[in-house]
Amino acid sequence: MNKTTTTVKPVFHVQDMNLWYGNNQALKNVHLEIPENEVTAVIGPSGCGKSTFVKTLNLMVKRIPSVKLSGELHFNGQNILKDKVDLVNLRKQIGMIFQKGNPFPQSIYDNVAYGPRIHGMKRKKELDEVVETSLKQVALWDEVKDRLNSSALGLSGGQQQRLCIARAIATKPSVVLMDEPTSALDPVSTLRIEQLISELKNQYTIVIVTHNMQQAARISDQTAFFLHGEIIEASDTDSLFSVPSDRRTEDYISGRFG
């Protein structure tokens, strides 16, 4: 197994992590380091555990009653599987983007202001500022600045997904998790999101699940290949795609299965 040799400190340090849904083991002895301000891509065939893996990083999996976890998952040095963690605080620091844009049925403004508002930001001026900078960061500001008070559901699919990214970064997280964020989008919108990801990585650590290997190759610095709940190989993206060290990785990226 190739280990990443990055000098930046890891934001997540995962060691021997196992996860069961009831009696079904979905993650097996997962070991991975996720470095700061880099894009980590998680690839693998359907049902390999890649979505489960990212949902573990912000402990969203704990919502499912049958889930059991073991091992270590350090976030900024704290083992969040063991220590008592404040989920509210944890998820404020770890934003999440879902497969389909899922804006709330509220105005564009309220969608972005939602997180900051509930986390205690009251003053209109501050909120205005957060909304503007967040929307600018996702390059949506110019498209929506004249209709901030109209419903977010009136936006196109690509715009909705960018709005969701703006909503996630409005709470000022340090990590953004993305679970197949472009799988429901057309190629043009996909390209916009990919550009956005490369811009965002200066400020955020990004973990992106994708079933699209080209996408992983285009945008990520590090790639982890999952198969049947195990990480078969994880290394910097260039070498994983050009000289995979494991036979199964090679078979997968050359399209022989999955």
């Binding site: 969203m60 944890l90 934003g95 997180g115």
Partner: peptide
């Protein structure tokens, strides 16, 4: 839709909120 609820929880919003 469940995604709506997940989106809110993933923002660190409490269940009640």
């Amino acid at each position: 839709p469940a995604e709506m609820k997940e989106a809110s929880l993933a923002l660190g919003i409490t269940h009640w909120h």
